[in-house]
């Protein structure tokens, strides 16, 4: 059987918690000897996905937990984000038109696009009361 390693981080739905994600990733990079070239993109993907959940999934002022699971197998990192917020499927969001000139480019709408561009696979599932976002990065 293929060998796998697993780690989990649980954060609260607060923007300051993104700093804990950065620290956690730095630890993971060292412990799992991840290629340096994927650390910044993975950091970016997590920030985009988690900030969406933090900003939009819950009623303001309520505290919730967001689970982030990391699984390392041969040349592949799988990340699953699980939250109990309102249903939201980021894979169904339309891509922005990146060929527009600056005057016509809308401010925003890039986060989910970046996730899809950086990761090799992105899938979403609503499981009971949970949003489950699974993402795979091959290296």
């Amino acid at each position: 059987m293929e060998q796998q390693e697993h780690k989990q981080l649980i954060i609260r739905n607060e923007i300051a918690e993104l700093n804990r994600v950065v620290t956690f990733l730095e630890g993971l990079e060292e412990e799992w000897q991840l290629p340096l070239a994927i650390i910044t993109p993975i950091n970016l993907v997590l920030e985009e996905a988690l900030s969406n959940v933090i900003f939009y999934a819950y009623e303001k002022g309520s505290t919730h937990e967001i689970k982030i699971d990391f699984t390392l197998s041969a040349n592949q990192l799988d990340i699953t984000i699980t939250d109990t917020g309102k249903p939201f499927d980021p894979t169904r969001k339309e891509d922005p038109d990146i060929d527009l000139p600056a005057e016509e480019r809308p401010i925003g709408g890039l986060g989910i696009f970046l996730i899809r561009k950086i990761m090799n696979e992105v899938s979403y599932e609503r499981v009971g009361q949970e949003n489950v976002l699974r993402m795979t990065k091959k290296f």
């Binding site: 910044t40 985009e48 401010i107 925003g108 890039l110 986060g111």
Partner: peptide
Amino acid sequence: LNYISSSGLRVFLTIQKKMM
């Protein structure tokens, strides 16, 4: 500058639009 996310990119685009 060693990291930027879409929040930062938004500010860059705002500056560009304003300067243009």
